[in-house]
Write a protein that binds this DNA or RNA. Structure first.
Lengths: 155, 155
DNA sequence: ACCATATAGTTGACATATCAACAATCGATT
DNA sequence: AATCGATTGTTGATATGTCAACTATATGGT
C-alpha cells in the first residue's frame, strides 16, 4: 500500500446521492412556486404564519424557519410590499412586531396548498404507505447523525 | 363534505421530512467546509476539476455542478484570487477558458478529502452496507419522481 | 466569403442567505 | 431609579444563486 488516503466508498457515494436528490428537490420546489411568483422561503413564511392568527415576531419566525433574523427582515419587507403579510405593533414589547398573514396572503395559501399536497403525492408515487414510513424513519435517523456530526465541528 | 381541500397526509409529511433533512445536510456541509474557509460550491468546483488535469470550460463546469453559467464566473473569480484554480487560454476555442486546479488547490483538496470521507462515514453510521444501498436506490427513485414532476410544470 | 445562428463568458439587477455592528428596548439586579 | 446585560430588528458587506442582455467567437449553409 503506497497511499493512506481513504477510498471513496459506499457511504461517500451515498452522501453524494443525498446531496444530488436534495438539490433536485430544491430546484423542483423553486419551479413549483414560480407559478405564483413566490419563493420557497416566502411560502414557508406564509405557511408558518397561517397557524398564528395573533402573529409572531420575526425572531420567532427565524427560529421556526431556521434562518438568521437578518434574513427575515428582507423576506417580510417583500411579502409586506405585495400585501401578503403585515407588521403590527406589539404593545407588550415595543422592540418586536407581530407579523400576521393578510386576507390576500390567506387567499394565496388557499390556491397553493392543494397543489402542494398534490405535488407531494406525485413525488412519492410508487412509494406505498409502508415504504414511505420506513423511508421517513431513515431520513430522520440520517438527520440525527448529521446533526450530531455537525456538533463535533469547532465554531 | 364541506371542503375539497386535500388533507396533509403521509406523503406531505414525508416531503417535509425530506426538505428538513436536506436543509440539515446543507448546513452541516457549510459548517464542515468553514474549517478551510471555503464554501460547498467552491469545494465542488475543485473536486470536479481534480479529474480534469487538462481543464474544462466554465460551461462544462456549470453543467456538472447543475448551476447557471453566470454563477460560475464569480465562483472561479474568487477561487482564482485565492490561487486555487487558474484560467488558461483555450487555443482551440478562443471564447472559452480551460479552468484547472493549481498546486495550491490540490494541496487543499488533499487536506479536505480525507476528512470528507470520514464525515460520510459519520453521517451513515448505523447504516449497514445493505441498508445504505437500499436507501440510495430509493433516493434515486425519488429523484426521478421529482424530476418527472418538475417537467410537468409550465416554464 | 458571407451571414445566420449558436455558444462562452461577463455583467447588472435581483432574491436569498450569512455575519457583524448598531439603536432601541426590555428586564433584572442593585 | 439607574445601570448592565440580553434581545429585537435593521443595516451594510459579502457569497451564492437566478435571469436577461451583451460581446466575442464558432460553425454551418448558401
Amino acid at each position: 500500500m503506497s497511499t493512506t488516503r481513504p477510498k471513496p466508498g459506499a457511504h461517500y457515494q451515498a452522501l453524494l446521492q443525498l446531496l444530488r436528490t436534495s438539490e433536485t428537490v430544491w430546484n423542483a420546489s423553486r419551479r413549483f412556486f414560480a407559478r405564483w411568483d413566490i419563493s420557497s422561503s416566502q411560502f414557508n413564511v406564509l405557511n408558518v404564519l397561517r397557524d398564528h392568527r395573533e402573529g409572531i415576531t420575526q425572531v420567532e419566525l427565524s427560529r421556526l424557519l431556521i434562518m438568521h433574523r437578518s434574513n427575515v427582515t428582507g423576506l417580510i419587507d417583500r411579502l409586506e410590499q405585495r400585501g401578503f403579510v403585515c407588521r403590527k405593533e406589539n404593545t407588550a414589547d415595543r422592540r418586536a412586531y407581530r407579523v400576521v398573514v393578510t386576507a390576500a396572503g390567506r387567499k394565496l395559501l388557499a390556491e397553493v396548498l392543494p397543489a402542494y399536497y398534490q405535488a407531494a403525492e406525485a413525488v412519492w408515487s410508487g412509494f406505498g404507505a409502508r415504504a414511505t414510513t420506513a423511508f421517513v424513519a431513515e431520513l430522520a435517523r440520517l438527520e440525527k447523525n448529521v446533526g450530531d456530526f455537525s456538533e463535533t465541528l469547532d465554531p
